[in-house]
Design a protein around this nucleic acid. Structure first.
Length: 297
DNA sequence: GGCCAGGCTAGCA
DNA sequence: TGCTAGCATGGC
C-alpha cells in the first residue's frame, strides 16, 4: 500500500475540478463515496489509484507496493493530469473582470483542466467524440475499452484499463462496427493505433510547438484541426488553445452573449484574442458553464 | 419524429 | 481555394 499527498502550486478547487471526473464516469473514473478511482499503466504494471481531496492537497492511495522510482513517476503523471502546477493567478488577474466571461470565471475559481492519462488515450477519445453527443461518445469509448483493454481486480471489483495501441491495432474494422462505430471512425481509430505500433512516437510531440504539433498530425487521416487542438489542450495541457469550431464553445458563447445564433468560427477566434495567453482556460470554463446550464434545464 | 451532436473526408466547382 | 453531402446512431 502506497500513500502520497500532492500539493497544488496555486489556488485550486477540487470541488470544481472533480466535476469533470464525474462526467467521465465509467470510461475513465469510477466514483466510490468521496473517492475517484482511475486505472493506469505504470510501465508494464497495471495499477488502480484512488484519489480524493484532503484539506489542502490531492490524496493518493495505491493498493500495491511501488518502488520509489515508480512512486516518483506516478506523482509526476498525476501532477500533470490534474494541472497541479498550473498557477491561475494571472488568468484571473486578466479575465475575472471581463464584462462577458467575468461572472462565470469567478463562479469557478480554482477550476483546473483535467488531462487524459496519455496522448494516445486522448487522441482515441477525441476521434471517437467527433461530431457525436458526449453521452453516446462515452458509450462508444467504454465499448472499445471493454473490447480491447485489460482488467485488474481492485478491492474485489473488476476494473477496466484503457487499451494499448497494440491491443487496438489487433482489432479489425468489423470488430468496431459491431460496437456501432461507423466504418470511417473504425478505420481512423485502428489505423492510428497501427501507425503508433509501427513507430510513430506520440511522446515526441511534447518537444514541439503548438504549430508544429498541428503540422505533424494534420496529415493523418481522421485528425483535423479541432482534434489536434483538443490533443494540445486535453492531452498536453497547453494553456493557449482555442478550438474555435467546437460546437460546445459556440453554444456556450451564444448563452453568454444571449444571442439567437451561434457565433461563427471566425467570430470565436476574434473574441478569443482577448483571452490570450489563457485561451484554453477560457474555453474550459465555457465548457463547464455549458454543462451547468444543461443540467439546470 | 426531426434535428442536433465537443468533425472529417472526399469530391466537386 | 472553397464549399458541401454523407457519415451512423443516440439523445432530447
Amino acid at each position: 500500500m502506497a500513500h502520497m499527498k500532492l500539493m497544488p502550486s496555486g489556488i485550486y478547487s477540487f470541488e470544481h475540478t472533480s466535476r469533470r471526473l464525474a462526467a467521465l464516469e465509467k470510461s475513465a473514473y469510477q466514483v466510490r463515496d468521496d473517492r475517484f478511482i482511475r486505472t493506469l499503466r505504470l510501465g508494464e504494471r497495471l495499477i488502480a489509484v484512488e484519489l480524493w481531496w484532503m484539506g489542502d492537497g490531492l490524496a493518493v492511495e495505491v493498493s500495491e507496493e511501488l518502488s520509489s522510482q515508480q512512486l516518483e513517476e506516478l506523482s509526476q503523471r498525476l501532477r500533470r493530469m490534474f494541472s497541479l502546477d498550473v498557477d491561475l493567478s494571472s488568468f484571473y488577474q486578466r479575465l475575472e473582470g471581463d464584462p462577458n466571461l467575468g461572472n462565470l470565471i469567478r463562479e469557478r475559481r480554482g477550476l483546473h483542466v483535467v488531462l487524459d492519462a496519455s496522448l494516445y488515450e486522448c487522441l482515441i477519445r477525441t476521434i471517437i467524440s467527433q461530431q457525436l453527443n458526449l453521452s453516446f461518445a462515452g458509450t462508444l469509448i467504454q465499448r472499445l475499452i471493454e473490447r480491447a483493454g485489460d482488467t485488474i481486480v481492485h478491492r474485489g471489483e473488476t476494473l477496466w484499463v484503457f487499451p494499448t495501441p497494440e491491443q487496438v491495432a489487433n482489432l479489425s474494422y468489423e470488430d468496431l462496427q459491431e460496437l456501432q462505430f461507423n466504418r470511417r471512425k473504425a478505420e481512423y481509430v485502428i489505423d492510428l493505433s497501427r501507425k503508433v505500433v509501427d513507430g510513430f512516437d506520440l511522446d515526441q510531440l511534447y518537444t514541439l510547438s503548438d504549430d508544429d504539433v498541428v503540422k505533424k498530425l494534420l496529415p493523418i487521416r481522421g485528425i483535423g484541426r479541432w482534434t489536434v487542438e483538443c490533443l494540445l489542450l486535453f492531452g498536453m495541457g497547453r494553456t493557449d488553445l482555442l478550438p474555435a469550431a467546437d460546437i460546445g464553445v459556440r453554444n456556450a458563447l451564444r448563452h453568454v452573449f444571449e444571442t439567437t445564433e451561434q457565433p461563427s468560427e471566425e467570430e470565436v477566434r476574434r473574441l478569443g484574442e482577448a483571452w490570450s495567453p489563457w485561451r484554453s482556460y477560457a474555453v474550459f470554463y465555457l465548457w463547464d458553464y455549458l454543462g451547468s446550464t444543461k443540467n439546470s434545464q
